[in-house]
């Protein structure tokens, strides 16, 4: 894949009179591990929504896997979206389904409605689900009810779902904000390992800067909808990070 995975050209997003992103341009190439950092409200989630095709820009061009999502039919857009897996801060799992169904939800883009119904009664693809769960380290939870799991375990289920979906790129929206510090390290390490092993691109938004340094190779600093820096992790200085957060405070 020589084309960039994502390409943004002078993208602006407005919600009413509020500008969430302004004139953002960037590219993400296959195999990169990118961290989005910045204070709350900087536009990280908006950017991720653009990248998974659930939000259209107010101005500028977005290309996802080489396609312009605003010009695609609903069906074609879905085909692109299937190549982009997202992991959320709040997991976005169905609490009263058993784990296997939440993992199997990763297949849904390829399954017919009838097959999806059947699987709710007799779970299909048990092997791939079991393998994905083994990959995220909770192989024994296949038939547990999802809401009986701890926060860290639920995030692993969400990651397993993305593994089953088998996308080209994984987006992670603050994946460790809802789990304790020990679990955070494990989850981040897991994400990095899985991306290495299955050759996935990773874009992750983070509040914990240390993981951006330790687990990613590129950092994009966002503040009030603007890209403040976009550098290899090694070139980002503590001063730049401090500025990213401090200036925001001064403004408020």
């Amino acid at each position: 894949m020589t084309d960039p995975i994502f390409e943004l050209h002078k993208v602006t997003v407005r919600y009413g009179s509020f500008t969430a992103l302004s004139e953002v341009s960037l590219q993400v190439k296959a195999g990169e591990r990118v961290a989005l950092i910045g204070p709350s409200g900087a536009g990280k989630s908006t950017l991720l929504s653009l990248l998974n095709g659930s939000l259209a820009p107010s101005e500028g061009q977005v290309r996802l896997l080489g396609e312009d999502p605003t010009r695609l039919s609903v069906r074609a857009l879905r085909r692109i979206q299937r190549q982009i897996g997202t992991v959320y801060q709040q997991f976005h799992l169905v609490p009263n389904l058993s784990v296997i169904h939440n993992v199997n939800a990763g297949h849904l883009g390829r399954w017919s409605l009838a097959r999806a119904m059947l699987s709710l009664i007799v779970p299909l693809e048990r092997q791939s689900a079991a393998r994905a769960l083994a990959d995220v380290g909770i192989a024994d939870k296949l038939y547990a009810r999802t809401d009986t799991l701890s926060g860290g375990q639920q995030q692993r289920v969400a990651i397993a779902r993305v593994l089953v979906q088998d996308p080209v790129v994984i987006l992670a929206d603050e994946p460790i904000s809802s789990v304790d510090p020990e679990r955070s390290r494990e989850i981040m390490t897991l994400l990095r390992e899985l991306c290495d092993r299955f050759n996935k691109t990773l874009v992750v938004s983070l509040h914990a800067i240390e993981y951006a340094y330790s687990h990613c190779e590129r950092m994009i600093g966002l503040r009030a909808g603007h890209v403040m820096f976009d550098l290899p992790a090694g070139q980002v200085t503590p001063g730049m990070v401090e500025a990213l957060y401090r200036i925001r405070k001064a403004e408020a």
Binding site: S49, G53, R78, R82, H92, L97, L108, W111, L113, A116
Partner: peptide, 25 residues
């Protein structure tokens, strides 16, 4: 709707997404 939204953003057709993301809940 979080789970539903998650599925839809992953390119899952609406029928299947509702079946897994909303109806069980």
């Amino acid at each position: 709707r979080d789970a539903l939204r998650g599925l839809l953003n992953g390119g899952v057709p609406a029928g299947q997404a509702l079946l897994y993301g909303l109806l069980p809940r």
